[in-house]
Structures are given as structure tokens and as C-alpha cells.
Amino acid sequence: MSQYKVVHCNINGRDVEKVVDVRASLTDMLRNDFRLTSVKKGCEVGECGACNVLIDGETFNSCIYLAIWAEGKRIRTLESLTGPNGELSDIQQAFLDETAIQCGFCTPGFIMTAVEILEAGKLYTDDELRKLLSGHLCRCTGYENILRAVKKTMYRRLGKEIDF
């Protein structure tokens, strides 16, 4: 097998093709070839969730997903949420409003899992939200304000009153 291979995929709404090292992770490809700096490296073995992206609508730790597996996939990173004029999406704004951001290193990964949760269109309980978000580690926030941000946005999207 050649050490390099062409991968065709869609990244943040744009069809792209790229020659990648077959040993490279999707994290490597997104960071190095596409300069998507929201994809963070905290462990590179699928423990911390900082590199989390959406692949065909499902969250994955991109550090343990080979770049070549991205063939034909739709990949979304945090960069896709910001509007053309820099507008924040509701979930990004909620992270700001709820003081859910501190050092910011785990933030992109968390927000992308929040997107998956919100796009499910379901009303989850706190326990369910905690479980769904538990693939991410954060040392700054104690997760408290992250829960608030996700929960408030979930309620708003469903047009329901928040019960805090």
C-alpha cells in the first residue's frame, strides 16, 4: 500500500480532496492541512474529547479516526457554526452568556457534542445530558456552566420554558 492516499470529503460544507499520509489521524488532517484550529489535541488517544468533530452528524474523537476513513464523509468542526459575518450560533452564544468558557481548550469539542444533542431535537433530563456530555474532560469549569449552556439552548430550541 502506498504511504499516501487521496481523500475526498466535505468539510464544513465545502467539497475537498487532499493527499494524506495513511497513518495520519483526522485531527492531523483538519489541523495541519485545513488549519482548523478549533480541533484540539489533549491526549491523542480518545480520552479527553478536545478533538471532537461531527462526522455525518455523529460525534467522533478525530484523533483516533484515520484521515483516510473520512472518504465520502461530511465533517463539521466548530468553524462551521460561525456565520459569514462572524455571527455566533445560539449554542456558542450560550457558552459565552453562561460563563461556560475558561481556558477555552475543551470548548470546541464540547460545543460540537452539544450540536449533536441539540440536533436530536429531544428534551433530555439533566442526567441524560450529563451522560451525553461525559466524553469530554474539562479541568476549569467543573462542567456546571457547560450544563447550563447546553440545557438552556435545548429548552430554547424546543420552545419550552426552562426549569432551573
Binding site: 482548523l36 484550529t37 478549533s38 480541533v39 484540539k40 489535541k41 468542526t77 466548530l78 468553524e79 457554526l81 460561525t82 462572524g86 455566533l88 456558542q92 452564544q93 457558552f95 459565552l96 452568556d97 460563563t99 468558557i101 477555552g104 481548550f105 470548548t107 470546541p108 460545543i111
Partner: peptide, 22 residues
């Protein structure tokens, strides 16, 4: 006053540059 973080926008959009991004 509980003002929003001055670095919050960049961190919420993934633009913030850490050492490795530079």
C-alpha cells in the same frame, strides 16, 4: 458586574491561538 469574557468570542469560535497553533 458579570461582564462577558474579553476573550470569549474567539474561544467560542475556535479562533484563539494556543502555542501549537502558532
Amino acid at each position: 458586574i458579570s461582564e462577558t469574557r474579553v476573550d470569549g468570542y474567539d474561544k467560542a469560535t475556535g479562533r484563539t491561538k494556543y502555542y501549537e497553533d502558532r
